[in-house]
Simulated scan of single mutants.
Amino acid sequence: MSEAMRINRALNKMSKLYRAAKARKLAALGLHPGQDVLLWILAQEPEGMTVSELAENLGIEPPTVTRSLTRLEGGGWFRREPVAMDRRQVRIVVTEAGHALVPRIERAWEELAEQAMGEVTAGEREVAISALERANDRLRRIAGEAALAEE
């Protein structure tokens, strides 16, 4: 098998397996993949965020954020507050219950990272992280170039 095939296969398999393992961990918290990041980002803003601000921060479209929030609503992890200057908008603010969930989300992320890396040395871990970060940077540029080409 060629190196290119091995890399593609490994990245595709890792992506699927990581998402499945993350889904299993998050299910124990009552969350689905993506909802963890949304809540975590919201929790970083004490005054909350509008749907547009949240969408921009996540790099996704506002309707996608709205759908995610609708799915999350039953958990009581956030509340909607009207924006004083613009009644058409609402500010999404994390509740006490949401803030209490954040450390559990972070713990799930830490456990998953440890389980995924296994028993590798600190040096091997640093090499793997650096390689993944550089690959992400390159893919971000490629994806950005593709988005520009579509316009």
Results as ranks from 00 to 15, higher is better:
Ser2Pro: 07
Met5Gln: 15
Ile7Leu: 09
Ile7Lys: 08
Ile7Phe: 09
Asn8Trp: 12
Asn8Ile: 14
Asn8Lys: 14
Arg9Glu: 12
Ala10Gln: 10
Leu11Phe: 12
Asn12Trp: 08
Met14Val: 08
Met14Gly: 14
Leu17Lys: 01
Ala23Gly: 12
Arg24Gln: 13
Lys25Pro: 06
Ala27Ile: 15
Ala27Asn: 15
Leu31Phe: 04
His32Met: 12
His32Ser: 15
His32Thr: 15
Pro33Tyr: 03
Pro33Lys: 02
Pro33Leu: 03
Gly34Trp: 01
Gln35Ser: 05
Gln35Leu: 02
Asp36Glu: 03
Asp36Ala: 02
Leu38Pro: 06
Trp40His: 05
Trp40Leu: 03
Ile41Pro: 02
Leu42Cys: 01
Ala43Val: 05
Glu45Val: 11
Glu45Ser: 15
Pro46His: 04
Pro46Asn: 09
Glu47Lys: 15
Gly48Ser: 07
Gly48Asn: 06
Met49Ser: 04
Met49Ile: 10
Ser52Trp: 12
Ala55Gly: 06
Glu56Ile: 05
Asn57Thr: 14
Leu58Ser: 08
Leu58Phe: 08
Gly59Thr: 09
Glu61Val: 00
Pro63Ser: 09
Thr64Leu: 03
Thr64Glu: 03
Thr64Asp: 05
Val65Lys: 00
Arg67Gln: 11
Thr70Glu: 11
Arg71Glu: 04
Leu72Tyr: 02
Glu73Arg: 13
Gly74Ser: 08
Gly75Trp: 00
Trp77Val: 10
Trp77Phe: 10
Arg79Phe: 04
Arg80Cys: 06
Glu81Leu: 11
Pro82Ala: 07
Pro82His: 09
Val83Asn: 11
Val83Pro: 05
Ala84Gln: 04
Ala84Tyr: 07
Met85Tyr: 00
Met85Pro: 00
Met85Ala: 14
Met85Arg: 00
Arg87Leu: 09
Arg87Met: 08
Ile92Ser: 01
Ile92Cys: 00
Val93Asp: 00
Val93Lys: 05
Glu96Cys: 03
Glu96Arg: 11
Gly98Ile: 00
His99Lys: 14
Ala100Ser: 06
Leu101Asp: 03
Ile105Tyr: 02
Ile105Phe: 03
Trp109Glu: 05
Glu110Gly: 11
Glu110Met: 12
Leu112Lys: 09
Glu114Asn: 05
Gln115Val: 15
Ala116Gln: 12
Met117Lys: 13
Gly118Phe: 04
Glu119Val: 14
Thr121Phe: 04
Thr121Val: 09
Ala122Phe: 11
Gly123Asn: 07
Glu124His: 07
Glu124Gly: 03
Glu124Gln: 11
Arg125Tyr: 01
Arg125Phe: 02
Glu126Ser: 12
Val127His: 09
Val127Pro: 05
Val127Phe: 06
Ile129His: 05
Ser130His: 09
Ala131His: 07
Glu133Asp: 12
Glu133Lys: 13
Ala135Lys: 12
Asn136Glu: 06
Asp137Ser: 13
Asp137Arg: 13
Arg138Cys: 09
Arg138Lys: 15
Ile142Ala: 12
Ala143Asn: 14
Ala143Trp: 10
Gly144Ser: 02
Glu145Thr: 11
Leu148Tyr: 12
Glu150His: 07
Glu151Val: 08
